[in-house]
């Protein structure tokens, strides 16, 4: 799930407003964008990039390692299946508001074919100095710098903040992995931590979590087994229980998903949990 500059990236929804804007930024940064998908514009060239009828079609012409979805929820299902069938190793699903039943089908399809889905509702992935896929401000060197700290986050804005805090304090990042804010994801926080633990240039890991769900508790069982030190910040300590924070369900119901349950699980696994994002860098330095 970590991208590099050799990965051939195809953009579903390349010809749309956001697809055009972010494909330009990705390409400029060093991401190897080999084309886009739009059945209605197949055979044309958009901003210097070839447009294919499908990812499967693109795979036969230029090859596809990674696909990224700038498509609305109604089109996401078909687009993800197309990307998986094209043999994409990684499918980055930025789309928000995909029904969870559709997500489960897509994740199931991807697992059977050996593809990894990031998201849905992720801001993407960044390998500073190499490539980025999604809509993160990777191009801003006040926020993202090459280095050895791996960062995992559910939220894009919070992931940006964590990288900013690291960079401001002289700590660059080996990779940023956005796992997305939906309750069901193709890649869990635990999966992302495992990937970073196995990544040779990652010397420390920062896990940015939120109240609700059990992603951080599950990640704790992986954190207990890895060599790298882990620093974590969990958002939502002051959120009232029973209120849904945002659409995707940062909600505390009963005793599951509470700040205390996450903090306790992470600390028991050996992670350092900080109170505010401003303390992340100091904790990474130890």
């Amino acid at each position: 799930m970590i991208v590099n500059s050799d990965d051939k990236v195809i953009v579903h929804g390349l010809t749309g407003k956001q697809g055009t804007f972010w494909a330009g930024l990705m390409s400029e940064y060093g991401t190897n964008i080999v084309g886009g998908v739009n059945p209605k514009k197949a055979g044309t060239i958009h901003e210097g990039m070839p447009v294919f009828a499908s990812a499967v079609d693109a795979a036969t012409h230029v090859g596809v390692d990674v696909s990224v979805m700038f498509v609305p929820p109604a089109g996401a299902r078909a687009a993800v299946i197309d990307a998986v069938d094209a043999g994409a190793r990684l499918v980055v699903v930025l789309t928000e508001f995909i029904p969870v039943h559709d997500t489960m089908e897509l994740v199931h399809h991807a697992r059977r074919h050996g593809s990894q889905i990031m998201g849905p509702n992720t801001a993407g992935v960044v390998t500073p100095g190499e490539a980025f896929v999604g809509f993160m401000p990777a191009f801003d060197d006040r926020i993202f710098r090459e280095g050895s700290v791996g960062v995992v986050s559910r939220s894009g804005s919070l992931g940006t903040l964590a990288c900013l805090e690291l960079t401001r304090n002289g700590l660059g990042q080996s990779a940023f992995l956005g796992v997305g804010g939906d309750p069901v994801s193709g890649t869990s926080t635990a999966d992302a931590v495992s990937a970073l633990a196995a990544h040779p240039s990652t010397e420390a890991i920062v896990v940015i979590g939120e109240i609700g769900g059990s992603k951080e508790e599950e990640a704790a069982s992986v954190i207990a087994t890895i060599e790298q030190p882990v620093v974590s910040f969990i958002a939502g300590k002051s959120s009232p229980p029973g209120k849904r924070m945002g659409h995707a369900g940062a909600i505390i119901e009963g005793n599951t998903g509470t700040y205390a349950s996450k903090r306790d699980a992470l600390e028991a696994a050996g992670a350092t949990v900080v109170d505010v994002p401003g303390d992340i860098a100091a904790a990474v330095r130890g």
Binding site: L161, G181, A235, S238, S239, M245, G246, D275, P277
Partner: peptide, 9 residues
């Protein structure tokens, strides 16, 4: 939502 909760915290 994540950044908003963080700001509250």
């Amino acid at each position: 939502a994540g950044l908003t909760m963080t700001t509250m915290d």
